[in-house]
Design a binder for these strands. Structure first.
Lengths: 189, 189
DNA sequence: ACGGTAGTGGACGCCGGCGTCCGGTTGGCT
DNA sequence: AGCCAACCGGACGCCGGCGTCCACTACCGT
């Protein structure tokens, strides 16, 4: 990961790095990934050169910015796996993932539109998908989910959810909730 | 509409106009709307000036290019209304609209991302939505669709469907079909 | 066939984002 | 305190898309 050694940066450099990441996260969440690097630098109160020195590629910036979102995903999935009720575990994962994606436009884009070299994300995605497959399997064995449902159907739902657009984040979350409920009804046995 | 008077163009001009529209439709369908005007002109075998003279704004080009897609929408909806079976009529409309959007990336974008001045589309959209609302109402009265479903849920489904992304159009259509089936199960009483 | 006009497209200048270089500044160690 | 290296950001040149102008071409009426 890009920020394994931030402690050997000088204090002001590390400080700027954090401000850049904060600004990036904020603007990515509301406006998506198609934001000029300059704009992020401006919001962080930093010159373009600093931004480019810290993150030579937009891809590196994106992966660094969304590391904690990735962690949130894991937490959601693990929480679902820990739930003794297979249906509730599965459903909550779908609902929460949908909401997470609705809240953060950029995360969706980063997760979906595969950067050619963002190997980190591919691996993480794989790991998360495996867990979700397990959730599906359990819910099916307990008779809560239709037997013909496959992992791809869940992926389909998440991808479709990312297509929901609304002016405000709040409206997006609302739409996302309604959508998740609808989709879950479609999966239920 | 912009092409109400194409007959008073000179023959070569009208010819070029058609080639521009053909090229635009083709490239919009596969690559979406974010295509340089130059690229469309190039594919049409036309200079940039000609393109700009015929369609001063990209918006005008888009609305002109998608007029027949709009008609296809109407045909789909009317066909659904004509079906004596309320559920089949409703379901077929959802399925076909999803497929139409999956086939043509640009149409989705044109329909969704409201151009500020594309009043034509807004009106057409309104008219189509009214018909769809009628379809929902009929299917509900016949007991096929859950009573708490509203028009917005259908819009939600169409919007979500437009989020489905796949490398090839064929794969998109396939995903779209699976998704439509899933969504319809979620609406069914 | 020919003249006039509508039509064409290559060429131009503009703008905004991109990635990089360098003179000035600041943190950290002694 | 003072020095040096790390760091900063304004400024630069490049590129690609945009919209427009003008000299040339081709259609159409007589």
């Amino acid at each position: 990961m890009a920020d394994q050694l931030p402690h050997l940066l000088r204090s002001d450099a590390r400080d700027n790095r954090e401000r850049i990441l904060d600004a990036a996260r904020a603007v990515f969440a509301t406006d998506g990934l198609d934001v000029p690097m300059r704009e992020i630098a401006r919001r962080a109160g930093v010159g373009p050169a600093t931004l480019y020195r810290r993150f030579p590629t937009k891809e590196l910036l994106v992966t660094a910015a969304f590391t904690d979102q990735m962690r949130a995903c894991y937490a959601i999935v693990d929480e679902g796996l820990a739930d003794p009720d297979p249906w509730r575990g599965f459903a909550s994962v779908v609902e929460k993932l949908c909401e997470l994606h609705a809240r953060d436009r950029g995360f969706t884009a980063a997760f979906t539109s595969a950067f050619p070299h963002a190997i980190d994300f591919a691996a993480d995605r794989e790991r998360a998908l495996r867990s979700i497959a397990e959730l599906v399997r359990r819910a099916q064995e307990a008779g809560y989910v239709r037997p013909d449902v496959v992992l791809d159907d869940v992926v389909l739902i998440l991808m479709a959810n990312s297509g929901l657009q609304a002016p405000s984040p709040a409206a997006r979350v609302l739409a996302s909730r309604r959508f998740a409920a609808l989709a879950l009804r479609g999966l239920r046995a």
